[in-house]
Design a protein around this nucleic acid. Structure first.
Lengths: 222, 222
DNA sequence: TGGTTCATTGACCGGATGGTTAGGGAATTA
DNA sequence: TAATTCCCTAACCATCCGGTCAATGAACCA
């Protein structure tokens, strides 16, 4: 029977579990990601996706019932790297080191996923589509991150390791504003790498300024 | 001759200098602003604009040669309040007071123009159209603001009135990141007013923390 | 061998969209 | 009054878009 030899030529790699269609579906997804990401939903036609993926338009509709289906698939594919467990990432270090590690995590994540983040923010901005399918996961991630921050900052304040002039929630909100501000700076200007280290240094100084608190046990390694 | 009685019914108000057509053009512009702002360019059809402005579609094309022409007109109209001379706004106060006034100016401006700013950011994000017509003025404004900030911070540092652990340019960049972060927080969540005062307080503490510098001569009045 | 499923396609369809055109009515001008 | 200009419209047009369909070849199954 010459078993297990379905695919025609190229290797199939680790296929997603839910689909059978060999590789065209993936080709379509890749093309759609590129097009949707830098042209948006309404500005991208199915014919363009088809052309970019070297398939017929009808095949796209065979794989995905509708254009919005395709868009949702793209969205979910792009959302995959966003499943992060921040709590797990920050080991059992001291509060100060954990906070700084979260800061670095945020910045490095932004740097490494700049293009999809730009896409998501643009998408979030104008609620045009997928407002629920996007805001859901994104907000969950965001709130988790902020929760961790508030908790850690609160504990650091209790130990007098960290700026105490404002309630932990306010400090956390401001820290997030700094991070988000740096994010959009990185998103707009393409000089990503340069000022990340500087931003980290200034945040550390702001949060733990005078205190002789925990040493710099987590070198940035950017 | 019954002079000066052209318009049919409603008062015409202060007409823009460059156009003759009585009021329909303005009606169209107003409708287009609303539609473009919260539905985007490609998602807004000329028929919709026509319906919203209570005119025929053809009239729009009589006033504006093409859809993109209309969009540019909308853009310029929305850009009008953005012609601010920051240097003039901040009078001859001390450096500290001037910096804080710039900060408040930024935040209040964002609060008062939230909707058009959201539109601009969304537009800037995805370069789909008008990338030049927008980035030009916006960047000019932004750079002017940052320039002022760098200068003032530098002078404040020289007088030992302000945080000196980092070069003025870096401090200014971080301050802008904070402001931009607060901006996007205000843009996404609609709780605008609440945390502006808090943000201002934290920025003041960050910049002029220990120093017994200039008094709070400019009450926020938010 | 013949049937069934899978993967794929070119051709087609109704609808919406940006844009045009020919014309009408009111005011101004001559 | 006649011609001209300005403002405005209904009707039209070509094009493109999302989506459907009938057909086709290849692999698998009986």
């Amino acid at each position: 029977m010459a078993a297990a030899n379905k695919m025609n030529s190229a290797e199939q790699g680790a296929g997603a579990p839910e689909l059978r269609a060999p590789e065209s579906r993936d080709e379509i997804l890749k093309a759609a990601i590129k097009l949707f990401a830098n042209r948006g939903f309404h500005e991208t036609s199915m014919a363009e996706v088809a052309r970019a993926a070297n398939v017929s338009k009808a095949l796209i509709f065979w794989h995905f019932k509708t254009k919005e289906d395709l868009f949702m698939a793209v969205l979910n594919r792009l959302l995959e790297p966003y499943v992060i467990d921040f709590a797990e990432e920050a080991g059992a270090l001291g509060e100060v080191a954990q906070i700084m590690q979260l800061v670095e995590l945020y910045l490095m994540f932004v740097r490494d996923n700049a293009s999809s983040i730009r896409f998501f923010v643009a998408q979030l901005m104008r609620g045009e589509l997928a407002s629920d399918a996007l805001t859901g996961p994104v907000m969950q991630l965001y709130d988790g991150y902020r929760g961790l921050l508030v908790d850690l900052i609160g504990r650091a304040q209790a130990k007098d390791l960290c700026l105490k002039d404002f309630p932990a929630a306010a400090v956390a909100r401001m820290l997030l504003s700094m991070l988000n501000g740096t994010l959009i700076e990185m998103l707009f200007a393409e000089n990503a790498n340069a000022d990340v280290a500087s931003a980290i240094a200034m945040i550390r100084q702001w949060l733990f300024g005078g205190r002789a608190g925990a040493a710099k046990d987590a070198p940035p390694e950017l």
